[in-house]
């Protein structure tokens, strides 16, 4: 499937889906205060839901029109490397998850080393020694600079200090 052809249509559907979710959550809200007031805590969320439904609907209509008009001949597919995107995202998720239990110092070191390796350009040789040194220096200097100099207690994790 050509993403560009259906991008506007998909976007419209996503807007409608979010509008439905937001609207449903608004109806479930427990609101105290004056019961007969027109404007309570639900007022703005309802207005936003309606706006999103209208915008989503319009976007779907325009999306269908755009995909029908899509010029296949002039289409140049974008070169996107989603494999790297997924790998780096997974790495970030693991990094954040381990930040507190293991501590800032070691997780950051490991994260930097792995991220350098994942992102290094295809044609170039990976300089692992350089990666290790940068990861070590960056994480250590950030950890101690923030903890001792700038009063920001980064998670210490398994470290005793």
């Amino acid at each position: 499937m050509k993403f560009s052809k259906y991008a506007n249509l998909i976007f419209g559907c996503l807007v409608l889906a979010f509008a439905a979710f937001y609207f449903f959550q608004t109806t479930q809200m427990v609101v105290g205060g004056v019961k007969d007031a027109v404007v309570d805590a639900q007022f703005v969320p309802y207005v936003l839901s309606v706006l999103m439904f209208v915008l989503g609907g319009l976007q779907v209509v325009f999306g269908i029109r755009d995909s029908a008009r899509f010029n296949e001949g002039a289409y140049v597919p974008e070169k996107s490397d989603y494999k790297t995107v997924v790998r780096i995202l997974l790495l970030i998720v693991v990094y954040i998850a381990l930040l507190v239990p293991v501590g800032f110092l070691f997780t950051t070191m490991a994260f930097l080393f792995l991220a350098f390796s994942i992102l290094s350009p295809a044609g170039q040789k990976r300089k692992y020694v350089q990666y290790v040194i940068i990861a070590l220096v960056t994480s250590t200097s950030l950890y101690f600079a923030f903890r001792s100099g700038l009063d920001l207690m980064l998670p210490q994790g398994i470290l005793p200090f």
Partner: peptide, 13 residues
């Protein structure tokens, strides 16, 4: 590829 991971770490901090 060296700059972006460091920026990410700074964002986390």
């Amino acid at each position: 590829h060296l700059l972006l991971p460091i920026i990410l770490v700074l964002c986390v901090v």
